[in-house]
């Protein structure tokens, strides 16, 4: 894996490989061009067209909201740092706990086939249930604070990892296990040196999914009932028709989602051997 950087570094020296770079650069330029065009059309329509600011706010108003929101002190009720922090913290805590539980339970079920056969129907049934539907229930049980939101994230990130770690465990080549056995490996060593690393691509595919879901789940939780967070802010601005604020929050969520996705993609590629 460390060799990858070496190969990358040597790439431009190879004339054949160099051929692929300009087209990639052109694609990037095209993506950026689309962003620019959207901004231009947006500016044109909202400033010189007939679209009123309470339907789509002009970009300058959205940026105004962003600058204001990030400038006010953290203690201010409209501080975007604060609300972004709350939402990310909920998403992060829930992601860590939900993924860890999902991986642990997935490996446990896969390791004991009887447990898997007995419990899997429930897993399937629960997975088919749209988990957002239990968000109001969790808020009733655990209140408007952090717990309920974290729990919603836990519930929603648990399943992708449960399912993927079971699949990962079963996908381990039999010969790899035999290899460990002929070396007198203990069950723990087989798990640690064969099963766990072999299932890494599955685990990271699951983590990728869960990371994206965690942000979604935190926002849903805040919609149902919260004292803070980007979801709450979004609802408040929406109710008071402050479209600049709504768009500012949406933009933050978009950027967060994009960065999260990008980071997880890199991690996943790293672990796909």
């Amino acid at each position: 894996m460390t060799d990858m950087s070496a190969i990358d570094a040597s790439m431009p020296k190879d004339p054949e490989l160099k051929l692929t770079t300009p087209s990639r650069r052109r694609e990037r330029a095209m993506s950026f061009g689309i962003l620019l065009s959207i901004l231009l059309i947006w500016t044109g329509l909202t400033n010189f067209g007939s679209i009123p600011a309470y339907v789509i706010p002009p970009p300058q108003s959205v940026f105004q909201w962003l600058i204001e929101g990030f400038r006010v002190p953290l203690s201010d009720a409209s501080s975007l740092w604060y609300h972004t922090g709350v939402t990310m913290w909920e998403a992060f805590l829930g992601f860590v706990v939900g993924s860890a539980l999902g991986i642990a339970m997935g490996f446990a079920l896969a390791h004991w086939p009887v447990a898997e056969r007995v419990l899997y129907p429930y897993v399937v049934a629960f997975q088919a249930l749209p988990k957002v539907a239990i968000a109001p229930l969790l808020v009733v049980w655990f209140g408007f604070g952090l717990d309920a939101k974290v729990l919603i994230v836990v519930v929603m990130t648990f399943f992708p990892l449960l399912v993927n770690s079971i699949a990962g465990y079963h996908a381990v080549e039999e010969e790899r296990i035999e290899l460990a056995r002929v070396c007198n490996a203990s069950e723990l060593q087989i798990f640690r040196h064969i099963i766990l690393p072999s299932s890494m691509p599955f685990i990271f595919a699951g983590l990728h999914m869960a990371a994206v879901i965690s942000l979604l789940a935190a926002i849903v939780g805040e919609f149902v009932g919260a004292k803070a967070g980007l979801g709450l802010l979004l609802l408040q601005y929406n109710n008071s028709m402050q479209m600049g604020g709504v768009f500012a929050v949406l933009l933050i969520l978009g950027v967060l989602g994009f960065l999260l996705n990008y980071a997880m993609q890199k991690l996943e590629a790293w672990f796909s051997y």
């Binding site: 290899l179 064969i194 690393p197 072999s198 890494m200």
Partner: peptide, 8 residues
């Protein structure tokens, strides 16, 4: 039968 080298 297959080399069964561990890719990591």
């Amino acid at each position: 039968q297959s080399p069964t080298l561990l890719p990591w």
